[in-house]
Simulated scan of single mutants.
Amino acid sequence: MNIGDKVRLLHGNEEGTITKISNGGRIEIEIEDGFRIPAMKNEVVVIHETEKQYFGNKSSKVQEKESSLPEVKSTKTTDGLYLSYVPINDKTLSLHLINNTEKDYVFMASDIFGDNSKTLSSGTISALSAKKLDEKSIPQFENWPPLFLQFIPINHRAEKTMAPFEKKVKFKASSFFKNQHMAPVLGKKGYLFAIDQQTRALDINKLNQELNEGKGEEPVSQQFKRPEKQIDLHIEKLTKEHEFMSNTEMLKLQMETFEKNLNYAIATGMDEITFIHGLGNGILRKEIHKYLSQLENIKYFQDTQKSRFGYGATLVRIN
């Protein structure tokens, strides 16, 4: 086998071109739309031109029949914007944004992690075209972050102005895996979802306010809310999205939670409050103690309740 050879997986329907050969019998195959998948040499077979000449269209028919997705009835898909999750293999889906309209759009697609976001793709998507946004792991389905989409219609000539719009998507397994259809433009079977343009119009000022939520001053009605006497700062207690956060992002969230609850404790006249930060590598404890040492209205702070928390908690006495 050489780079550039056409190959087919023995235990799958994928065909592609070898783009990399590594030691130990590992290779990399580029399949349709530029996707690359790893494999072992003994898991693939080289496709010779004589095979296609002999089988003709029969080969493609067999592959279609063996597709991991069940057959779906051929129905005409209406014009619109769509998300399509196309299987690459039995564990990975390729996420595409599809523009099945006669209008171009400026778009941005982002994964949302609480107050944080990660832009997957942005730019212009032309009429009757598709763009790959990301790849998703099926075993990690329950941990997929919400997907936030923003669209601005483009008018290339004087015509009726369409308002920008946005949509936030979070799937449930019960409905996601039942929604199998042929994706327009792509012409591939996958999990297909229409993006309803009748969602709320994109308000730039409100969007900026939402993205900065929690960074500015708390609403007056919540400024003096008395916190619990013990605040657990373990990251899994603060967010379900921690697996997708960097160490810096996790520390930032933990410190914001610590500062907010300490301020509430001081404002509501509490005498003391305990922050459970765990042992770990000691970075969070160090940052908390550094912050406390700079405050004048703190009587003292100390490691506390070894029998219950070990040295993974800090007691703060307030003046």
Rank of each mutant, 00 (worst) to 15 (best):
Leu9Tyr: 09
Leu10Gly: 03
Lys20Leu: 09
Ile21Val: 14
Gly24Glu: 04
Glu30Arg: 11
Pro38Phe: 06
Val44Asp: 00
Val45Thr: 14
Lys52Val: 05
Lys65Thr: 12
Leu69Thr: 05
Leu69Tyr: 07
Pro70His: 01
Pro70Met: 02
Glu71Gln: 13
Leu83Gly: 02
Lys91Tyr: 13
Ser94Tyr: 02
Lys103Ser: 14
Gly114Ala: 07
Ile125Phe: 08
Lys132Trp: 04
Pro139Tyr: 06
Pro139Ser: 06
Gln140Asp: 14
Gln140Met: 12
Pro146Lys: 08
Phe151Val: 06
Pro153Ala: 05
Asn155Leu: 07
Ala158Glu: 14
Ala158Lys: 15
Glu159Tyr: 04
Thr161Cys: 04
Phe176Cys: 04
Ala183Arg: 00
Phe193Trp: 09
Gln198Trp: 09
Gln198Pro: 00
Asp203His: 13
Ile204Asn: 06
Lys206Leu: 11
Glu210Val: 15
Glu217Asp: 11
Gln222Tyr: 13
Asp232Ala: 07
Leu233His: 01
Lys237Ile: 04
Glu243Asn: 15
Glu243Tyr: 14
Leu251Ala: 10
Thr257Tyr: 03
Asn261Tyr: 01
Tyr264Leu: 13
Met270Asn: 10
Glu287Asn: 12
Leu292Gly: 02
Ser293Arg: 12
Ser293Gln: 11
Gln294Cys: 06
Glu296His: 12
Ile298His: 05
Phe301Tyr: 14
Asp303Lys: 12
Thr314Cys: 09
Asn319His: 12
